[in-house]
Design a protein around this nucleic acid. Structure first.
Lengths: 205, 205
DNA sequence: TAGATTGTTAATCGATTAACAATC
DNA sequence: TAGATTGTTAATCGATTAACAATC
């Protein structure tokens, strides 16, 4: 397969998001220009990006929203389903479990983990909360590949260690402390507050 | 002032984060190589970035962590303090209010808003929750400039409208629905789940 | 057919990397 | 001084934009 740059993939994920809402609005067709206006990109950029994923548009007509979305998702997920688990079912963890933007059909949240006995056994948005000490067993049973870290930052490293030991291949780290993991494990750090600074920088200009 | 690229600024924000933890570990000096190892960047990239913010390192010695952090923060925030308000004090909003990574001295969370009478009047991590209908008045009184959207996605647009009407200049949108605002208002969209897909894309490769 | 829109190839632009000079 | 590390200038690389061809 042709190599697609990370930047393009990131944009593709945003295209999927936008297409979802267009589909919900019952919009069947969209042109690169319209898409560009919505997303603040040029039409050329969009056509260029999309061309990475195959011929999917019709000259004079545009792109079929549903078809384009499928094409992009197929590329990104390669028709596979990803199973993920969540570590830490506090406010942030609950917010993630309830987040409406989830591609539920593509990313399955198999289980959540917490140390708080009051939470263990409950379900949050259909996902059961298990005791953190059982994480290894349950991760293996579900063959999950991605872990989401939403624990207090003191617990970030031990929790990450546990996830790595269970054989997960990727971790999305929502805590503001950096974690160290073996090279084979991919980490994405998400800092909820860094965007405020970034926004402010933009305002200044 | 010399123009600094957005990419560089984004990295600068991460440098600040990393420096904070180094400072907490009582590390006084750090070399570009060390910093690079921690952050997964080359030493050259780091020196190049830092050179945008003035001469701050000492050859043969490295950078003073505290000095470098201040230099970067001064550049990013220009010694000003930003006042922000939060719209929506549910799980996600509470998680943001409690997020430990906040630069509390630089970004002041002036107020939170919600429609739920049970929440109004309470304090979350020291920030008082007000009735959403009072937002305009309170925003003006506090002279806040940034709004954080953490409401259910159906309310994203009306809430954004209210924030814009109150005169805010920037919005950090945590809902997965896109909002339309006047051009003078800057928006940063944060999709909590998009990183999972991005991570998965990385795994595949 | 004419016109609009997609898709591609070439040109430009910007960011990263490499090489090296400056400095403690 | 010698050696290590910063900071800068030049070269490379990649991504965006422009121009245009293809197509419905």
């Amino acid at each position: 397969m042709k190599k697609v740059s990370k930047r393009t993939i990131d944009r593709a994920l945003l295209y999927i998001r936008t297409l979802e809402s267009l589909i919900k609005e019952k919009k069947v067709l969209v042109s690169s220009r319209e898409l560009g206006n919505i997303m603040g990109l040029t039409d050329v950029q969009i056509r260029k990006d999309i061309s990475n994923f195959g011929r999917v548009g019709t000259p004079r007509v545009g792109y079929q929203t549903a078809e384009l979305k499928n094409k992009l998702e197929d590329f990104v997920l390669q028709k596979r389903v990803v199973r993920a688990v969540l570590f830490g079912a506090g406010n942030l963890g609950s917010a993630i479990l309830k987040y409406p933007g989830f591609h539920r059909d593509k990313i399955q949240l198999a289980a959540a983990f917490d140390v708080d006995p009051k939470k263990i056994g409950r379900k949050i948005n259909g996902v059961r909360v298990f005791a953190a000490r059982d994480a290894g067993r349950i991760i293996k049973k579900n063959r999950a590949t991605i872990g989401i870290l939403a624990v207090p930052k003191e617990h970030a490293q031990p929790a990450a260690d546990q996830l790595v030991a269970a054989g997960l291949r990727g971790i999305v780290n929502f805590t503001p402390s950096s974690i160290t993991v073996p090279k084979r494990v991919l980490v994405r750090n998400i800092d909820l507050t860094i965007e405020f600074l970034a926004l402010f920088c933009g305002l200044r200009a």
